[in-house]
Design a protein around this nucleic acid. Structure first.
Lengths: 253, 253
DNA sequence: CGGCGTGTTGAGAGACCTCAAGGCATGTGG
DNA sequence: CCACATGCCTTGAGGTCTCTCAACACGCCG
């Protein structure tokens, strides 16, 4: 697992204080004491290639990670390989909070791109709670935000039409990426296939394809490979009943 | 709101140390110091009648609650009243963690029965994190467990057939209730209508009714009003690919 | 070159939905 | 005590959204 990831972004370890993410306005600033507390807990970095398994379903000793760079997704599967993507994971997001709390992970996490993770060793989480309550609060906050993403997904899959689901997902990913400085105007690189979209929205691959084609024909967006250009954000937001909540500043552990 | 709830279970305030829930084996015991920490934060009790709004969608100052007695559910709605139930809430569950973390609640919570809540005032949550890290950890744990319930719901709605969804929901509610001592052998009282089941599973009322009828005819379960008797738990578990996770001991705040 | 992953499109099938009507129990007011 | 309204459950009929099966195009890569 450490052989295939050779030339990936230099694999440079970054000190928390120098973390580029922290400069983004969506992240709330930490004071020096808090930064020290994090650095004391988080020493190791981990680099994984596209498609790598970050958390294996059923894993019993997964660590807690913060994504420094790259995309991933969390999912559950049934025995006959039906797969449901629970949410997509972007830089600044936590990975593995549930599995850090429980004995075994009920889910899996897989990298969508080459990915750079910061590791918070499982056994140090409790230490963090007792020594740095502010950070503990932030972890809880991030857990709640993740649940909110899953809530939104459940609302989509349970009660929205295929068009509305697609619109909701595109808008949500676009705005999350843009807030991280990953968008260029109305253009984002979404490193996902139609199969991922289908698995996230509870649709079949074929129907996802046809729905995407229809929305594209109507001028909602354009696409070349993984490059998505949002052409009619208003219309997408209306379809999705989108509520801006991803813009709220949030903690970064 | 305090007039209609007259003769409801005497409305006796209970001290945490005397809490009946704590005697159940599924809850991890707390030591005296932790009990004191909770009692210091949680003084108020609240009693609400069936159908009451516990958290209004969009509410900005909701408190954090622990359910002492009664059932509820958490949901999201779209502007045209399509409603998705996110999960059901039983005694020992937390209500309002997300809305305690964020400015506004993205969801609503409604009582399914007369309900007895223990209130953790919103403004004391931070105090709890700084003074009682063990309890802070437990809150995070409970948040993760709630997310796990939503995950399971999303998997159901996204990837399971109607029969499998019904089986999953019935098994899950039955086992959760039984672990709380709310079942009598294979019989539980589920205070929900078919509309609730439909809204939780992303199905229409009519199709929910027909699917329930089919499973009943096949001998999976029997029903009289809200009284459900599980007749073939094995078959239900097989349909649901049920994994026992609700039996793990958990904290009670 | 052939294999593979991804995207596209057509045709037919089926799961699920909407509309509609009626039954049964409970509660309320005359 | 009856009339009536209300909430929940049930069933039938027909429509449609979404699925499965199938085939093909395209680029990439060994």
């Amino acid at each position: 697992m450490s052989t295939a990831k050779a030339a990936f972004c230099g694999e440079q370890t970054v000190r928390c204080a120098d973390c580029e993410l922290r400069r983004l306005p969506i992240f709330t600033p930490l004071d020096d004491r808090e930064l020290q507390a994090i650095e004391a807990v988080k020493r190791e970095d981990r680099f994984l290639p596209t498609g790598a398994t970050i958390i294996e379903p059923g894993a019993t000793n997964a660590e807690l990670y913060t994504v420094y760079r790259g995309w991933a997704f969390r999912y559950r599967i049934l025995s006959d390989n039906r797969r449901q993507i629970l949410h997509f994971i972007l830089p600044g997001d936590l990975i593995g909070l549930q599995s850090a709390m429980f004995d075994a992970a009920q889910y899996g996490v897989e990298a969508l791109t080459d990915i750079h993770l910061c590791v918070l060793p499982r056994r140090k989480i409790w230490e963090l709670f007792s020594v740095a309550p502010h950070l503990a609060f932030d972890i809880t906050w991030l857990g709640s935000r993740e649940e909110s993403l899953v809530d939104e997904g459940l609302l989509s899959v349970g009660r929205r039409t295929a068009d509305e689901r697609i619109a909701t997902l595109l808008i949500s990913l676009f705005k999350r990426a843009r807030a991280l400085g990953l968008a260029d105007g109305n253009v984002v690189d979404l490193p996902i296939t139609q199969q991922h979209i289908a698995d996230a929205l509870g649709l079949s691959l074929v129907h996802t394809n046809k729905t995407l084609a229809r929305l594209r024909r109507v001028g909602m967006f354009a696409r070349q490979g993984s490059r998505f250009e949002m052409l009619n954000i208003r219309a997408l937001e209306r379809l999705a009943e989108y509520i801006d909540q991803d813009l709220a500043p949030r903690p970064l552990i």
